[in-house]
Design a protein around this nucleic acid. Structure first.
Lengths: 222, 222, 222, 222
DNA sequence: TATGAATGAGAATTCATTCAT
DNA sequence: GATGAATGAATTCTCATTCAT
C-alpha cells in the first residue's frame, strides 16, 4: 500500500523522508534538464541512487511525481519570500527587496523557470489537480496587496496597482531573461549570462518596476 | 537524395514547396502543443496529411525539422516587425507601436513562446546550429538602436538605453504573461486570459516601458 | 541500470544466466541464418521466447549483442580445442587430430563460418572492440607453436612452419568448403554436402596439410 | 517496358550499356561493402550517379540486381582464367600459374569473396535461379581435368586428383585468407595484409598444393 | 522497504519500391 | 530513357510501468 506523503514524520520514517527527498531532488533536476516529456524515470532513479521501483512506490507515477516536484518548487519560493519580512520594511525598500530577491532566486534556481515552462506546455494540467497550490498563493497576494496599499497611503506608490499584475511583471522581467537566456544569447549574439550583463539587468528591471510604482502623477501622455 | 530546402523555388517544385510548408505548419503546431520531446513525428504526419516518410525526405530528422520550425517562427515575427516602419513614426509612438505589436503577435501566435520554451529547455541546442538566425537579428537590433538614439536626440528618451535590454523587457512582459498564463491563472486563481485582464495587461506593460524610456531625469532615489 | 554480463554468477542470478544464454543462442542462429544486417532483433526475441526489450536490457543494442555472439563462438571452439590435449599426442597424430577436429567442428557448427563471414564484411568492426578476443588466442597460437617445434625436434616436421599460416590453412580448407558449400554446389553442379564428398574432402585436406608439414626435405622444384 | 539485358549492343544503346555497367559496378561495390542485406539501393544510385528509379527500370529489383552482380563477377574471373592458356604450359607450371593467378585475382578483387560470402549466407538463393552460371563452369572444370590428366600421363601429378576438390583447395587457401583477413588479423594480433605476410602466404599455399599434386608416391603414413 | 527481471505499447528512423510526369 | 515526389511496411530502440520476491 502506498505511503502517505503528507503524514508528519515520526522517528521510524527518517529513511522514508530522506529517500523521498532524494527522489524529489533528482526528479526536479531531471525534469528541469529535459522537461516533463523528455524526463526519464530511469535517469531519475540513477540520479537519486535508488531503485526505479521505489519511485513508483512513493509517488505512484510520473505525473504525480512531477506534480510533487512542482508543489515543492512553489512552496520553496513562497516560503523564502516569507522570510523577507516585507511588512517590516519601508515600502520602496520592500519593493526593491522583492525584486532583488526574485532575481537572485531564479539565478540560483534555474530549474524553476524550466519546470514552469514545462508545465505551461501542458496547460498546467498537473497544477490544476493540486490541492495545495492555491492555498500557498493567497497569503502571498495578500501580503503584496498590503504592501501596495501601505505605500499608497504613505503617498509613495501610485494608486490602483494590481498586486497580481505587478508581481507578474517582476517575475516576467527576471524569469524571462534567465529562463530564455539560451535562445536570447544566440539570437542577439551576446553572452547574456556574463556578470556585467546580469548586473545591468537587475538595475534595469528595478528601475522599470520601481519607476512605475512610484510614479505618483499619472502620466498625461498615456 | 534529399532535396535542398534552400534552393529557390522553380516552377516545377510547386508541390515540393507546398508539401514542405504544410509539414512545417503541422510541426509547429505539434511542437507547440507538446514541446520537442513530447512532439510526435507520427502526429505531425497526420496533421499535415502526408506520409511520415516524406517528413524525413524533406527534413532529415526530428531535430532538423524542429530547427526549421524555429527559424520560420523567428523569420515570421522579424518580418512582421519590418512592416511596422517604426523609423517613420514619432519615437514614443514607435515604441508604443512596438509594444502593442509584440503583445498582439504573441496573443495571435501562442505557439511562439511554447517553441522558445522548448528550445530553452534544450539550451538552444538547435538554434546554435542555425546559420540564418543571427543574420535575422542584427538588422532588428540596429533598427531599435536607431529608434532609441533618435528619441534621445529629440529629448524624448533617456540616455543610454540598451536596445537589447529594452527589447527583452518588452518581450518578457508579454511573453511571460501569455506563455505562462496557464500556471499563473491556476496559482492566482484568476482567469488571466479574460478580455479585461488582457487589456489591463497591455496598458500596464506599456506604461512600465514607456514610463521608463521617457523618464529623462534619472530618478534620484535609485 | 543494465546488469553486468561479466559478473560472476551468483545463486540469485540463475534466471539471468539462463535468459542471457537463451538470447545468445537465438542471436547466434539468427545472425548465422541472415548475417548481421539481415538479422532481426524481433526474430531473435521470438526464437528465444523472450520479450524483445529484454535483449536490450541485457545486451544494450544489436551491435553489442553480435559481439557477444562472436566472443561466445570463439570461446567455444578455443575451449573445445583445449580438450584435445594435443601436447600429449605424437606430433603427426596431434596434427591429424587438429585437422579432423576443425573439420568436424565446422560441420557441426555451420553457424561459425557464417558469423565470421558477416563480421569480415564489416571489417571486424565488432571484434576490434573486444577485450577478450586477443587473450583467447595467444595460448592457442602458443600451443600450436609448441607442437610444431616438438615435431621438428623429433625430425618429423619440416623447419620454419609458421603456426598462424598453418592454422589458417587448416581452417581455410575446411571453413571455405563448408561455408561456401551453397555457391560451390551450384556452380559445380554437384552436391558437395553428400557423405561421400565430405569424406573425400577430409581425406584430401588432411593429406594436403600433413603432406606439407611432414615433407622434411624441402622440394627442390619450388 | 523493361529492356533486355541480354540484347547485343547496337549503336543506339551505347548509353544504355554504359548506364547499366555503371550501375553494376556501383552495386558490386555496395554489396561488397555491406553485403546483400546491408546494401542500400539508395547508395547504389548515389555511387552510380543515377536516379534510383533507373535501377529498377534496368534490373527489376534488388534481388535481380544482386544476381546480375554475381553473374558478372563469376564471368569475370572465368574469362580471365581462359586468358592463362594453361593448356599450353607444362603441367606444374600451369598449376603454379593458376594458383598465382587466383591469389592475385582475389587480392585485386576483394569484392569477390565478399559477394560470395553474402550469397552463401542466403544459401545461394540467387545463383540457383541463374541460367548462365552452370554453363560458365563446365568448361572450367573440363580444363582443369584435362590439365590433371595430362600431368598424370607425364608422370608428374599423382593419380586420381579430383579437379573440383583441388580447385576448391586453391580457392580456399587464398579466398579464406584474404576474405577473412579482418577477423584473422584481429584474433592473431598481426597485420596479415602486410607485404611480407602476403608473400609468405602465396609461397605457403603454392607449396601445399603443388606438393600435394606432385607427390606421386602415395605417402605411407596416411 | 527495497529490488532485479520482465514487458506492451509506442517512438524515431529506414528501406525497397512505385507514382506521375 | 530518366527523374523528383511519395509511400507502406518494417526495424531498431525506448519508455513507463509491473511482477515476483
Amino acid at each position: 500500500m502506498a505511503p502517505s506523503r503528507l503524514a508528519p514524520s515520526n522517528p521510524a520514517s527518517r529513511d522514508t523522508d530522506r529517500s523521498q527527498a532524494t527522489i524529489l531532488r533528482a526528479a526536479r533536476d531531471e525534469f528541469s534538464d529535459h522537461g516533463f516529456a523528455g524526463g526519464r524515470v530511469d535517469r531519475i532513479a540513477d540520479r537519486a541512487g535508488v531503485n526505479k521501483r521505489l519511485i513508483y512506490y512513493y509517488f505512484g507515477n510520473k505525473n504525480e511525481l512531477f506534480l510533487s516536484v512542482l508543489e515543492n518548487a512553489y512552496a520553496d519560493i513562497r516560503n523564502a519570500e516569507k522570510g523577507l519580512h516585507l511588512d517590516q520594511l519601508q515600502p520602496t525598500d520592500a519593493l526593491r527587496t522583492l525584486i532583488r530577491f526574485t532575481w537572485h532566486y531564479v539565478l540560483e534556481h534555474p530549474e524553476f523557470p524550466s519546470l514552469l515552462g514545462s508545465e505551461n506546455l501542458m496547460r498546467a494540467s498537473h497544477l490544476k489537480k493540486s490541492k495545495k497550490i492555491r492555498d500557498m498563493h493567497s497569503p502571498f497576494v495578500k501580503m503584496l496587496d498590503t504592501l501596495l496599499t501601505r505605500g499608497h497611503e504613505q503617498g509613495i506608490f501610485r494608486a490602483g496597482i494590481d498586486p497580481v499584475q505587478l508581481y507578474i511583471s517582476i517575475a516576467a522581467l527576471g524569469f524571462f531573461y534567465l529562463g530564455n537566456n539560451a535562445t536570447l544569447s544566440v539570437i542577439f549574439g551576446k553572452d547574456l549570462k556574463a556578470t556585467k550583463e546580469l548586473d545591468e539587468r537587475l538595475a534595469h528591471m528595478t528601475e522599470l518596476v520601481v519607476g512605475y510604482a512610484t510614479n505618483v502623477t499619472t502620466p498625461l501622455t498615456i
